[in-house]
């Protein structure tokens, strides 16, 4: 019986960890970087073309500017998609950090009032644009919404700790996402410059051919 109880406790604490892991922001998105999303090392580095002549005469390019440009354009759109995805992730993380800040701000007031042993008079939102007045006596515990339709009760300090750690995690994810965005932007810039130079190279080549044609006739 006791062992059963223990295993039940263990399961509960596992569940709690899992839920805390996925503590969701208001829009229900977990704050970790999505699985399957490219990490920074997985983004292929675009080759910088130093010498256009040498680059174009490579066997796989065969001096065909149109083909090379088409290939580069494909890379370019792929990079643009990765960029847009990460910009979305970043926006979500920022919203989440803002929401955690709001929770922490409220928690601060709760703690202060508790230390003064004063009740809080509060107007809280019942529905959009409908606020109702409530008196909150000094509280010991707070409920944190962990997502998956679960709310868990915490001691005030414990809850604060959890929120602070969630915020730190969201911030480090934000930084990682920014690094990915910077890396992708770098690849995009290299691709833009490559395309412009190959285009110019082709223009010059065709002009030279035209002149040669004129000279011959």
């Amino acid at each position: 019986m006791k062992a059963e109880q223990e295993s039940k406790n263990l399961n509960m604490s596992e569940l709690k960890d899992k839920l805390e892991e996925s503590l969701a922001s208001g829009d229900g998105q977990p704050n970790s970087i999505k699985k399957g999303q490219l990490t920074n090392t997985q983004i292929p580095a675009v080759e910088f073309v130093e010498d256009v002549d040498a680059f174009m005469s490579r066997p796989e390019n065969g001096s065909e500017a149109q083909i090379v440009l088409k290939r580069m354009e494909e890379t370019y759109s792929r990079m643009k998609i990765i960029e847009a995805n990460n910009v979305g992730t970043k926006r979500r993380l920022k919203t989440q950090i803002q929401e955690l800040d709001k929770s922490l701000e409220m928690l601060e007031v709760l703690k202060q009032r508790k230390s003064e042993n004063k009740e809080i008079t509060n107007h809280f939102r019942l529905a959009d644009h409908v606020y109702i007045k409530a008196r909150i006596p000094p509280v010991e515990k707070i409920g944190l919404w962990l997502g998956a339709k679960v709310m868990l009760e915490y001691d005030m300090d414990e809850g604060e700790e959890l929120l602070v750690s969630k915020k730190a995690k969201a911030e480090s994810n934000l930084k990682a996402t920014q690094d990915i965005i910077d890396n992708v932007r770098e690849q995009i810039t290299v691709t833009e410059v490559n395309m412009a130079r190959i285009y110019n190279w082709d223009v010059k080549r065709r002009q030279a051919e035209k002149e040669k044609g004129k000279g011959g006739s």
């Binding site: 701000e105 409220m106 809080i120 008079t121 509060n122 107007h123 809280f124 939102r125």
Partner: peptide
Amino acid sequence: MQIPVLVGESFVS
């Protein structure tokens, strides 16, 4: 007088 101030998502007096 008590003044309601927005803290987080609700107004605290």
